[in-house]
Computed example of a mutant assay.
Amino acid sequence: MTSTDGWAGRTAAMMTRLHESRAVTGLRRFTRAETWVHRSLNCLMVVCVLTAACLYFPPLAEIVGRRRLVVTVHEWSGILLPVPIVAGLVSRAFRADAGRLGRFFPHDWRWLRALVRTRRRQPSLAGKFNAGQKLFAAFTVGAVLVMIGTGLLMWFPRLSPLVWRTGATFVHDWLALLIGVVITGHVYLASKDPEARRGLRTGHVPRWWAREEHALWRPEPPAPPTGADPGPGPLTGSRPE
């Protein structure tokens, strides 16, 4: 009897998850502005990676040809990478999430230590973004800035001495390889979490996913209609994470 009850409970939980996953709306995780920023960065980064591959791998270079055009597309797609981020700063939600990504809390360090010890993520120690996502965001921003700086030195060779251009080329090439490896890992992890991808695509995630994967995240309640009673405010000292 107990086994039957347990099976029924698990079945009900699975049906609830399936219903929430198929629902059009759930918890609001990202606004349209944040979704736009992520998609724009994805497109520009894909163009950068593909054109870089065509420039550095002879078999691809022979297939594509038109090296001068590939170089031009690569240069301008790299220069434009910061544009979506700067434009996204107009959004208050984007600025708030950028602040979350840029701050490490004690539970983030515990998340990392647990990952090193057990090789497993710890959802109970994750806010809206876990420590791995924060490190990836920091690496991406830093890498983009370095790539733009070294790329400009290579783009305008007459404005810098030879030793600078040589160093810039070395850093640019090896950092590009590291970015490719990190992006591959990022895509692999994303492929294993369809609900996270749904959140980036639609802006909403199921409640069960938020509870299980980001247990410390406290989504902000939707704003009440104009003229409605807002109800009791948040507890003193509480802060959504």
Rank of each mutant, 00 (worst) to 15 (best):
G199H: 01
L80C: 12
L81Q: 07
P225S: 11
H214G: 09
D173Q: 10
L115S: 13
V49S: 06
I63A: 08
H38D: 09
H19W: 14
T72F: 11
S77F: 00
V146E: 07
R103D: 06
V141T: 06
L55K: 04
V146I: 08
G231F: 11
M15Q: 14
A13Y: 01
L125P: 04
R158Q: 15
A215P: 05
W7F: 13
A215W: 02
T226E: 14
H204D: 06
T202C: 07
G78D: 09
W209R: 06
L41F: 09
S238W: 14
G102M: 14
F104H: 02
W208V: 11
S40Q: 10
P58L: 07
E241N: 04
L200M: 15
R22I: 14
T226A: 14
V64R: 00
R117H: 08
A215V: 06
P219D: 07
A61P: 04
G227P: 03
T169Q: 14
G65T: 02
I63Q: 00
L189P: 04
R119F: 12
R239W: 04
G233C: 01
A8V: 08
F105I: 03
A176E: 01
L153R: 05
K128W: 10
P59N: 06
V90L: 14
R197I: 15
L189I: 11
R103T: 15
H214M: 05
R211N: 13
P161K: 04
M14H: 04
A126C: 12
R197F: 09
